[in-house]
């Protein structure tokens, strides 16, 4: 464990808490993409199957359970409890166009052809594009509530911090995982446009308005 990964995980946890608070407090999931939340639930389910087989640390197990539980809770809140506030008309990204290529790529490019490894690789590839429906929704509605942009900033920062963690591990532990690094780069690059808007607008108290 290193400071980059710890802050990355905390930023990830913060993002999930911000989202749950936003939905619970405002009793609305307007502006949030349910499709991205479904993708995150798939990502954590396919990545954390090793919860059953491998114990790494209490922290690792605890965080995995939290991520899986909160991702399903968010999907439940969006599609059941606060279903009436779900923005179905704008949340139209075809997630099969993300899932199918991730499955194919995981079958072709992986570290070893076992069930756990291919599922883990699939989850890495899917996570790198899982935010696209959310960014697509924000671009379609042309704006985002500030709480939603804080959520996106925390979520984008988590993988950016993981990139620093991988640099650190390469030099300090002589360890690296190219699949995770390349996917992490793609994932972080997708946020660049948003990061720019967040820093130049939201932090100045303005609303996040995308140029129409």
């Amino acid at each position: 464990m290193n400071i980059f990964r710890l802050f990355g995980d905390l930023s990830h946890l913060l993002a999930i808490i911000i989202l749950l608070l936003k939905i619970w407090k405002t009793r609305s999931c307007a502006g949030i993409s349910g499709k991205s939340q479904i993708l995150f639930a798939i990502v954590y389910t396919s990545r954390y199957l090793d919860l059953m087989t491998t114990y790494i640390s209490a922290y690792n197990t605890f965080m995995k359970i939290v991520f899986v539980a909160t991702s399903y809770a968010t999907v439940f809140l969006m599609y059941m409890k606060f279903k009436a506030t779900y923005d179905r008309n704008h949340d139209t990204f075809r997630i099969e166009f993300l899932i199918v290529p991730a499955v194919i790529l995981a079958l072709v490019i992986n570290q070893e052809f076992t069930v756990l490894e291919v599922l883990w690789t699939f989850s890495i590839y899917l996570e790198s594009v899982a935010i696209l429906p959310q960014l697509f929704l924000v671009s379609k509605t042309g704006e985002a509530e500030s709480i939603t942009s804080h959520y996106l900033f925390a979520l984008g920062s988590y993988r950016a911090l993981y990139l620093l963690n991988w640099v650190y591990r390469y030099y300090a532990e002589d360890h690296y995982d190219l699949i995770a690094i390349v996917a992490g780069l793609v994932q972080t690059v997708l946020y660049c446009d948003f990061f720019y808007l967040y820093i130049t607008k939201v932090l100045k108290g303005k609303k996040l308005q995308l140029p129409a």
């Binding site: 990964r5 090793d50 491998t54 640390s57 690792n60 963690n165 532990e173």
Partner: peptide, 10 residues
């Protein structure tokens, strides 16, 4: 050992 190293991340 190698498994733990590469899969100890979330």
């Amino acid at each position: 050992e190698n498994y733990i190293k590469s899969k100890d991340e979330l």
